[in-house]
Design a protein around this nucleic acid. Structure first.
Lengths: 227, 227
DNA sequence: TCCATAGTTATCGTATACGATTTCGTACTT
DNA sequence: AAGTACGAAATCGTATACGATAACTATGGA
């Protein structure tokens, strides 16, 4: 009766739940910039766009709220979480700590191939400095750091790092657009970091270096914002 | 506050959403130990207990999942997240990092009154050592550390610390029950921490001390578990 | 006796429906 | 004319309903 449709076995692969799909879809739109900060996320609208009911969309929104990507107000609705300077400060400071730790924990596990890859990325960034393209530069920056922290054996810490980066994704270009001078310094610090890792420096040294690297970007931003 | 007395009028203050209520209720039951690790959280059952529909309960469960308090499997259901040794390791390590940072950031803002309070708590812990009561000891331990990190000016970091502690709440007694020797050492380290803060030691020193304090508990546990 | 398979049950995932709350526009009063 | 009060529209929050999925049980064959 229920016609179990065994006919198409291959399609069975990944019928991810609609909540998941909705989550991925909305998150993608936020990260990629289709939904800009402040954009109002109306459940019914999104549900219609995706062809779902509102229920899975609701769940997706709540998950995004938990990650800090959207702001939610009861009986009012959800909006894409902009990042005001204060939020930026908090997020960067937190990221400096968890990313520093992740990088230090990851360092002993990074093989020379990965180092080479990171160095190549950093080289691209250096080239990028001339015909300055902030968006590309920021993307490469994330690639670079990913190589450094992705080997972190503690998944909790790694997750926190990812969340921090996601949180900042809505800014993308902004950071380096606002603080152009910082970009060059950044590239230099990257090379220094690589040498520390290659040289098997002790964990504390690497952690501090990674943390200060991020903190320096934050400071540069703050100095800029002051004026 | 035993009942949610629907009759109460004019209490416009907190008509909290049922999702919130469900979240709080389930979380409380987990933290207080009514729902032990592995306990199966059946949506319909919980909904009935609370007198709600399943929808708000669902949302609550998902939030708890995001916090790591429950494990959720699609089309199967949710269970209270037990903490196996690996999870314990990850959680404690993460906590050592974020709590260390939170304590260091918090330190300059801790006034002498708070220090005195913390010292009083630690004194209670010391007394607790004789007629050893692991549950009480652990509760006091949390009180003590709360005083130290609650002033942390960065709410994101503070939130991470809280999540870590919640995650460990299901163990409560366990840690110090399993590693009795650790308790005395712990009390001593607390006093040392207080002196660092009183003496306005630099942030890095305090951070390291706080981190090592937690890491030491973890190590003690691991050494014990090995046997 | 043990394993494979079909049927049953428990539980989840999502759609639809409706009441509740907020927001916005409009008319009325001062 | 400006401010306030009322009402309509938009949107959310929750309940109920039903199809879908996976765990469980019983039955038959090797």
């Amino acid at each position: 009766m229920t016609e179990t449709a065994v006919g198409s076995p291959a399609l069975k692969a990944n019928p991810e739940s609609k909540s998941q799909q909705a989550y991925a879809a909305v998150k993608a739109r936020i990260v990629e910039g289709t939904y800009t900060p402040g954009y109002r996320l109306v459940l019914a609208k999104i549900a219609e766009d995706l062809g779902f009911s509102v229920v899975p969309v609701r769940e997706a929104i709540r998950r995004l709220e938990a990650e800090g990507l959207v702001k939610f107000e009861r009986n009012v609705g959800a909006t894409v979480a902009g990042i005001d300077p204060t939020e930026y400060l908090y997020t960067m400071q937190t990221l400096s700590i968890v990313e520093g730790a992740a990088t230090a924990l990851s360092a002993p596990l990074i093989d020379s191939v990965a180092i080479a890859r990171a160095r190549a990325v950093n080289e691209e960034m250096r080239e990028c400095l001339e015909h300055f393209d902030p968006v590309r530069f920021t993307a490469l920056n994330q690639d670079f750091h990913s190589v450094l922290f992705e080997h972190c054996p503690n998944p909790h810490i790694l997750d926190l790092v990812h969340r921090g980066w996601n949180r900042l994704a809505s800014l993308r270009s902004s950071t380096f657009r606002f603080v152009p001078g910082r970009a060059q310094e950044s590239v230099r610090e990257h090379e220094a970091l690589l040498q520390l890792i290659e040289g098997a420096a002790d964990a504390d040294t690497i952690e501090k270096a990674a943390r200060r690297h991020r903190a320096a970007t934050l400071d540069a931003y703050l100095a800029q914002a002051k004026q």
